[in-house]
Design a protein around this nucleic acid. Structure first.
Lengths: 331, 331
DNA sequence: TTGTACGCGTTATCAT
DNA sequence: ATGATAACGCGTACAA
């Protein structure tokens, strides 16, 4: 690949002059400028970013460390991050931790070796001290995304609020029993429970929780539940995957949706639209989250003096579809 | 961030000695070695990869240019590529073209600026001359993945074979009408048609094709189809998305699956397992494809003299589930 | 075994 | 307006 020195040799000027031309410096003879540009074009010159960043300028690299790109949500997130970074002339170097804290550590080391200008991180465990100390040593702007992380800029969904949306909706639609499918440490669960408790004081007696992911165990739990009660049940799941799993089981059991059971998923995957009945779901503003994250990162790069810390919860939106619309016309 | 020169200063040795210690060179005094290592650890030294690659060694970067990370298939592909590359000490710099040839061009330029050691490419148009000439100028190993590309190493699914799998399966299951949902330029379609034509000479009269992606248009086409015939119909779609869309419509129409219509999707997304009825689908060996691709890239890096070109079609597998199993026990 | 000297490709600071 | 020259952080050949 051709270098500036080589172009200089070919055009009979000095290397710094080539640098000036290629960087659009005005103080250069138009004739020389043209000659150099022509030569650069002819040999399809591309500056060596590595050499550029070595002299002190930026690497124009943003490290992106996520827990699982295989997950459609994170895939979309990465997509928008790449897009937004590209707009600002940054490229991304991507790492997948696979929810492994040890591997996250390695990724943080590698990211460091590449002297990335900034880092977007989805921590394996947002409360762990490990990544925090490593991030501090990085001495570069870091933005945590999808998780609230004290002391670090973070953009994330207000999960409690999202859970409340689901709870209120199911109550409004007249469901009298409630079922949560997921992890109870999840803030979605908190929001869901709190919202319902406000609406129905006796709510505690009407809540069932299923924490397993295994189809057979979910089936057992659901069968048990519908044996106990004939009240119509509102089901909220921690992601669409789980919701679809539940829908499949319910259909197999002959439970009518949304009459006997209403289902609300989470993530608003494209699939929701295609299912029959179409699946209600909670949508995250993925694109906005990604854009804000990258913009913040770049702001920090341009204003190293800005020591403020951003803690920015984003708002979820309930997309109600047939799977939870018991009352016609009401949304 | 601390440098070798700095460590040298702190420990009172020369910078090359530090380099020798950190690179595991044996020819160095154990005492000095320990002192240097201790100092490096204390300050958490990480070598500057950019400087390393500037001296002539590798950047240890692999460029990955795909058409759409938002797509679950490519997301998985990227995941495994990152994983396999990581095993060999390579990191990936990721680009998403969004099926835009112009943007692909820009990505190829950027990849070049970073002096990546190798490139994994999913071309927007595998037949375009554009990327070929650019790739040639890159002067680095390039492997095309998911598309057959003459003159360049490529690992891809034998789509015709995959289509044939679907065709034969539907015929075996006793479906008498056939419907393809997708693009007819797709090799899946070719394979599907050819396989069925072999089995049934009069097959041409029993084939319907739906090319639109729009739900309403698909619905119309399906309604028309099932008005015309009461023979049970085998449906093959170009991806799971389309299959799920079709399933939703069919259920809404009251068509019984798999009795009146059998459906086979493509990609074997996790969702297939969760649907009711569970969706038959054609699985691509994504992990294998990714691993072979990265391994080939690294082989080329280690053997620059090897001028052979690999054209490696991979084999699809039909995962048959209830959505297409009309005859019990048969798979 | 260790240090000196040089070069990788670029930017930036000097003179000229 | 342009050309020397130094510097970035590292690896490597060579000398000591």
């Amino acid at each position: 690949m051709i270098t500036m020195a080589e172009i200089a040799r070919l055009t009979g000027v000095s290397q710094p002059t080539v640098s000036r031309v290629l960087n659009g410096n005005k103080t250069v003879n138009p004739e020389i400028r043209e000659k150099v540009l022509a030569c650069a074009r002819e040999h399809d010159f591309q500056p060596n970013v590595l050499a550029q960043s070595l002299v002190g300028s930026r690497t124009k690299l943003i490290g992106v460390i996520v827990t699982d790109i295989g997950n459609a949500f994170f895939a979309d997130l990465v997509k928008y991050i790449e897009q937004e970074a590209g707009k600002a002339g940054y490229s991304i170097i991507l790492f997948n931790t696979g929810y492994d804290a040890e591997h996250e550590k390695e990724c943080l080391d590698v990211v460091r070796r590449y002297r990335v200008d900034g880092l977007v991180l989805v921590p394996v465990d947002e409360n762990a001290v490990q990544w925090r100390s490593m991030v501090r040593k990085l001495e570069i702007p870091v933005v945590v995304i999808t998780r609230k992380a004290s002391g670090v800029d973070s953009y994330y969904l207000a999960h409690d609020e999202a859970g409340a949306l689901a709870g209120r909706h199911l109550a409004e639609q007249g469901y009298e029993e409630y079922l949560f499918l997921g992890n109870t440490r999840d803030m979605k669960y908190r929001g869901f429970v709190d919202a319902l408790a406000k609406i129905r004081p006796d709510f505690g007696a009407h809540l069932t929780v299923i924490t397993t992911k295994k189809t057979e165990e979910i089936r057992q739990a659901l069968e048990e539940h519908f044996k106990k009660t004939d009240h119509c049940t509102g089901i909220f799941t921690y992601n669409d995957r789980r919701a679809i799993q539940a829908l499949g089981i319910l259909e197999e059991m002959g439970i009518r949706i949304p009459e006997q059971a209403g289902v609300i998923g989470f993530d608003n995957t494209y699939i929701c639209e295609y299912l029959y009945p179409r699946l209600s779901s909670i949508a995250q503003p993925i694109e906005e989250m990604a854009a804000l994250t990258v913009q913040r990162l770049i702001h920090r790069l341009d204003h190293p003096d800005d020591k403020s810390v951003i803690d920015h919860p984003l708002h979820a939106e309930l997309i109600s579809r047939e799977s939870s619309l018991r009352k016609r016309g009401e949304k």
